[in-house]
Design a protein around this nucleic acid. Structure first.
Lengths: 342, 342
DNA sequence: CTGTTAGCGCATTCAA
DNA sequence: TTGAATGCGCTAACAG
């Protein structure tokens, strides 16, 4: 068995308190006893148990990032990586570590109950979802990213509707009338069948507004259609393949995640189509590689790093019982070459 | 204050055990008492405290990934993301969660001591480093990724030396004689000034072997030079800029991380150089976007996903007291267009 | 099926 | 400066 604080105390002929002080409040004891204790500790390979420590101090020194996707999917998505990078930037500077909280057995409930963290940042989970109730039940400080606007909810995000509307406007103003939108598939969150689709819905609204101005609308028989896809290269490729095989293929594809665009590019290459001459492609997020593609990908730039950074600061404040308020960040259109005129 | 198991027990007129069973061993008590307890629990918003649970059960249900880089840097590197994806793949299937363990205050020592995890996977940390000793001191099961070969160390990696040698051979066989290698900067691990550079050194050895066959060698005045860089786009760009400004610029740049190549591409674009006509660029890792660049990046393909997956399985075995042995994975050369002949 | 009891390993208040 | 005692919240062996 591993040595415990008792073993050290006994061997050093002091009490547990003294040993504890040696590690946590060195100034409170004489340098001599401290040295003796530390020597014995290192001899016996003693290291204070983090869990017991956590229980006694009632704080873990970790924050969790709650994601509706599997861990496997999470690290597949460069945009989420950007968010994590922003969160990490704050963690690095404040001695807290990061826990990835993903569904266990496809369900988030258990994950939340078992999470040993001081606070949580959710990504893509909105109000009205049982998950957030559970968080409240645990009296867990939390901040949402892309969780939608809502009073008494601290959220970090952009105006997705406005961003989508602006993007679609650019597409339509270039005479495209036959467009396809790659939505992100909804995800099951708990046994009660929760879904997440907040930003998706907001963006759809935005697209709709712009379409409306041009007398267009989404629909089975219209020329604006929605494809349900995942935020992966493969899914983008697959969906694009289907579209490109249609007798009358769309002239523009809008991906709700840049990462899908990589797949679309490949599908176009396979089909011998040139971007943007034969077909236009636009994305959303502006992941790092977007501008390195050829042609560079037109997209909506929203800083995942900033989102993460703000969220991490806010949850840190919340943990310290300081007040925190929602943040709405800016977005910008990056109209690169992949979007052309008809 | 949050309700505890005692509050529930008291209010339900049962003992703590019964409440505990209601949550963990529902079959051990009558359905009736269970329902009553759960009703009271949800009424009082009771959720078993994960930390106390962990202390009592002596297992956290989490594994940690120990990285010598800051969290911020970690999520900047697509290759590490691939490793994490592999680890995540195993986690998703076995109900364990993932903790990112990065240096605190630039030092890993504290991180290791405070890590509340059942096992650890290190990335880029090798034998002879104090970090591993500390891990042993904590009796913590661990597996290294890219930690080098060593008896009594469970490691997952590839034959870096052979991979580097093969890569350099391809470059030299295409008549390049003036090559630059972008090494990865060493990193400080602890107060005692630990460094990590295992895979780097192995690869340098491999490069050297190939160079040797052509009568070349690294050196200040030779035509094979080493640049110390970080694994980021920016660092790659910066280093490339300097090289391209030289009176006699190299004809080939070898990046030890694909991500740097993105920066090199950009620097070449700025300088009006075409790849591979004016200069060749090769990488290492084969990150997802490598094949989407234009021209596609020549590189050494090693599967980060597989590394992560194997390491996670091994550490899981170790935690379960099962035996585990090192794994050496394959690599393959992806000789894409960015590598040309002189 | 349920209750009693004893830890799990450490932090910390209060006395000495 | 040090020590004894108490609590953190839960699990699990054992007894009934």
């Amino acid at each position: 068995m591993r040595a415990t604080i008792n073993d050290i105390a006994k061997k050093a002929g002091v009490s547990k308190t003294t040993v504890s002080f040696a590690f946590n409040n060195p100034d409170k004891i004489s340098g001599e006893t401290r040295d003796r204790i530390m020597a014995i500790a290192s001899e016996l390979g003693y290291v204070p148990d983090p869990v017991a420590r956590t229980l006694a101090m009632r704080q873990t020194g970790a924050i969790g990032v709650l994601l509706p996707q599997s861990v496997h999917e999470v690290f597949h998505n460069p945009y989420i990586a950007e968010i994590l990078r922003g969160i990490g930037y704050v963690c690095d500077g404040s001695d807290v570590s990061l826990s990835i909280l993903s569904p266990q057995n496809g369900v988030l409930t258990k994950t939340i109950r078992n999470a040993a963290v001081d606070g949580i940042i959710t990504v893509g989970i909105g109000p009205g979802m049982s998950v957030l109730e559970l968080l409240g039940q645990r009296r867990m400080p939390f901040v949402t990213i892309d969780g939608g606007k809502h009073t008494n909810l601290v959220n970090v995000g952009i105006d997705d509707e406005a961003a989508a509307e602006a993007l679609m406007e650019e597409v339509l103003s270039r005479s495209h009338r036959d467009v396809a939108v790659f939505m992100l598939k909804r995800v099951t969150l708990s046994e009660t069948g929760d879904h997440f689709s907040l930003t998706n819905d907001m963006r759809l609204n935005g697209f709709g507004k712009a379409l409306d101005r041009y007398g267009l609308s989404f629909g089975q028989y219209s020329t604006a259609r929605v494809c349900h896809t995942e935020a992966t290269i493969e899914s983008g490729k697959e969906a694009a393949r289907e579209l490109l095989a249609l007798p009358r293929r769309p002239t523009a594809i809008l991906c709700l995640a840049d990462i899908q665009a990589l797949g679309v590019y490949e599908a176009c290459r396979e089909a011998g189509l040139s971007i943007p001459k034969d077909i236009s492609v636009v994305g959303f997020d502006d992941i790092p590689s977007a501008s390195y593609l050829s042609p560079p990908l037109a997209t909506v730039r929203q800083s995942g790093f900033d989102k993460g950074m703000h969220a991490a600061r806010l949850v840190t404040d919340l943990i310290a019982k300081k007040p925190a308020e929602s943040v709405c960040l800016d977005f910008t259109l990056e109209l690169r070459e992949s979007l052309g005129s008809l």
